[in-house]
Amino acid sequence: MNSDLTEEEMRRALFGTPQPEEQVPAPLVKEPVEEVVPAKPVVAPAAKKKASKAFTPRLRVTLRVGNEFEGKMIELIHEADTL
């Protein structure tokens, strides 16, 4: 196996020989389309419903923190609406 390859030979080995690009025909010119503006339907105003207040469970986290092994402990409590 030949270890003295040129840069061009390495490129051909990795990527293959370059293929000519296909010519894409020019895009066709479309005729202008008339804009149609839809009329808004008339809707009778509905009676507004009061939003019911849903029950939101609260999360209570209790954390006991100590500075010494089996020593004095401090208890921290945090309440949140979300996780």
Rank of each mutant, 00 (worst) to 15 (best):
N2P: 13
N2V: 05
D4C: 03
D4E: 12
D4I: 04
L5P: 01
L5A: 15
E7R: 00
E7W: 00
E8F: 03
E8W: 02
E9N: 01
E9L: 04
E9A: 13
M10E: 11
M10C: 13
M10N: 06
R11D: 15
R11F: 12
R11S: 10
R12G: 05
A13W: 00
L14T: 03
F15H: 07
G16A: 10
T17P: 00
T17V: 06
T17I: 02
T17S: 09
Q19I: 14
Q19W: 03
P20W: 02
P20L: 08
P20H: 07
E21I: 00
E21S: 07
E22W: 04
E22F: 04
Q23L: 08
Q23I: 09
V24W: 00
V24R: 03
V24S: 01
P25K: 04
P25D: 14
P25T: 11
A26V: 10
A26P: 02
P27V: 11
L28T: 11
V29R: 04
V29F: 03
V29K: 06
K30M: 12
K30H: 09
K30G: 11
P32M: 06
P32H: 02
P32K: 03
P32T: 07
P32E: 09
E34W: 01
E34G: 08
E35A: 13
E35Q: 10
V36F: 06
V36W: 02
V37H: 05
P38Y: 05
A39H: 07
A39V: 15
K40A: 15
K40P: 03
P41I: 08
P41H: 05
V42H: 03
V42W: 02
V43D: 04
V43G: 01
A44F: 03
P45I: 08
A46N: 05
A47W: 07
A47E: 15
K48Q: 13
K48F: 05
K48G: 11
K48H: 07
K49G: 13
K49Y: 09
K49T: 15
K49R: 12
K50V: 14
K50I: 10
A51G: 03
A51L: 05
A51V: 09
A51M: 01
S52P: 00
K53H: 04
K53A: 14
A54P: 00
T56W: 01
T56G: 05
P57T: 13
P57I: 08
R58S: 13
L59G: 01
L59I: 15
L59R: 02
R60G: 08
V61H: 00
T62Q: 05
T62F: 00
L63G: 04
R64A: 09
R64Y: 08
R64E: 15
V65R: 04
G66V: 03
N67M: 06
N67P: 00
E68Y: 02
E68I: 14
F69M: 10
F69Y: 07
F69H: 04
E70V: 05
G71S: 12
G71Y: 03
K72C: 07
I74C: 01
E75F: 02
L76I: 14
L76G: 02
I77C: 01
H78L: 07
E79N: 09
E79G: 01
A80I: 02
A80N: 12
A80R: 06
D81M: 06
T82K: 06
T82S: 14
T82V: 08
T82I: 13
L83Y: 05
